[in-house]
Every structure is written in structure tokens, then in C-alpha cells.
């Protein structure tokens, strides 16, 4: 590390789990989470020169969220891109041992994945990446009030889905 700026390897080592957790909660599956982390670290490496020491996890959360949103926009523009060449990849792969989480953790992920993207992103940024409303607003390019209302609606929807399952 020089001048308080970590190297990308240090970021991968010290904040890799954080990046993967945010990526997984946003995307809802391991394959996409891996791609998001990889692309995020490429952007981290290229952007390190412009990084100003401050909230590193805030900066990383913003990068991984942007990578996710870019991918979502790309799919909306070119829906055929979402269809993989390999027909076997249409079906979700069986989870590897590392991906199997017990009980309600799966339910939380399922509920998060079922949330519309506009609610899921602020919920993940707030409750997984621990970002302030201002940071989320800046990352998403929306007013703080919009973050507040989307986050609240997202949590209400989550609560409904989780309580349906629990009942």
C-alpha cells in the first residue's frame, strides 16, 4: 500500500468477501456473482489511480452495484444476450457445496431475488453493504428521498414474502 491507497490485490484479499456478498445478494446466484466480482476488480484496478482514501467499502459497493446495473441495462437493450450459447446453461446448475446455505438464508436470498430491481438494489446497498442513504443516492443517481421510499417499500415486500414462508 502506498499513500494510504491499497493495491487491487490487497483489496481482493481484505474485501473480497464483502464484494462477493454484495454481488451475490444483488444477482441471486453464484455464477453471476463471480462474474460481477471479477469485472468489479478489473474496474478497481483501473480506477485505483483516481481513488481518494476514504470509505473503501463505499467505493467498492458503488463499483459492484454499477457493474450489476450496467449488466441489467445491457440485457434490457439486447435481450438475446441473456440467452447463453450453451443450452445446458439455460438450466441453473446444481449448487456446489459452498453455495448451500442453511434454512432461512436461502429464503432471504429467494425473497431478495424476487424483489424488483429498483427495490432490491437499495436494500442490498443499505443492509448488506451498509451504505448511507446519501451514498446510495449518489451511486444510483436518484434523490435521497427516493432511496428512502424504495428501501422502505423493498423491506415491506421482503417482510411479506418472508412471513408467508414462515407461516
Amino acid at each position: 500500500m502506498t499513500d494510504g491507497v491499497p493495491t487491487w490485490e490487497e483489496i481482493a484479499r481484505d474485501h473480497g468477501r464483502f464484494l462477493y456478498a454484495v454481488a451475490y445478494r444483488l444477482s441471486g446466484n453464484d455464477d453471476e456473482a463471480q462474474d460481477l466480482v471479477q469485472e468489479s476488480l478489473i474496474r478497481v484496478r483501473r480506477g485505483l489511480e483516481r481513488y481518494e482514501p476514504g470509505s473503501l467499502e463505499g467505493w467498492l459497493a458503488r463499483i459492484v452495484t454499477n457493474v450489476f446495473l450496467d449488466e441489467m441495462r445491457r440485457r434490457k437493450r439486447r435481450p438475446t444476450d441473456a440467452l447463453p450459447d450453451d443450452p445446458e446453461r439455460v438450466l441453473p446448475a446444481a449448487p456446489a457445496a459452498d453455495e448451500v446455505y442453511v434454512g432461512l438464508s436461502d429464503d432471504i436470498q429467494a425473497a431478495l431475488s424476487a424483489l424488483p430491481e429498483e427495490f432490491r438494489v437499495p436494500v442490498v446497498m443499505c443492509d448488506v453493504a451498509d451504505q448511507s442513504y446519501e451514498q446510495i443516492a449518489e451511486a444510483l443517481g436518484v434523490p435521497v428521498g427516493t432511496v428512502r421510499s424504495r428501501l422502505h417499500r423493498g423491506r415491506k415486500l421482503l417482510r411479506e414474502m418472508l412471513s408467508e414462508h414462515a407461516a
Partner: peptide, 13 residues
């Protein structure tokens, strides 16, 4: 796992 499930279940319900 059970304890954690129970804790969250208790929290929800």
C-alpha cells in the same frame, strides 16, 4: 442452523 432459524422466526413472528 435451528437456533438461527428460530431466532429469525421469533423475530418475524
Amino acid at each position: 442452523a435451528g437456533g438461527w432459524l428460530r431466532a429469525v422466526g421469533d423475530y418475524l413472528l
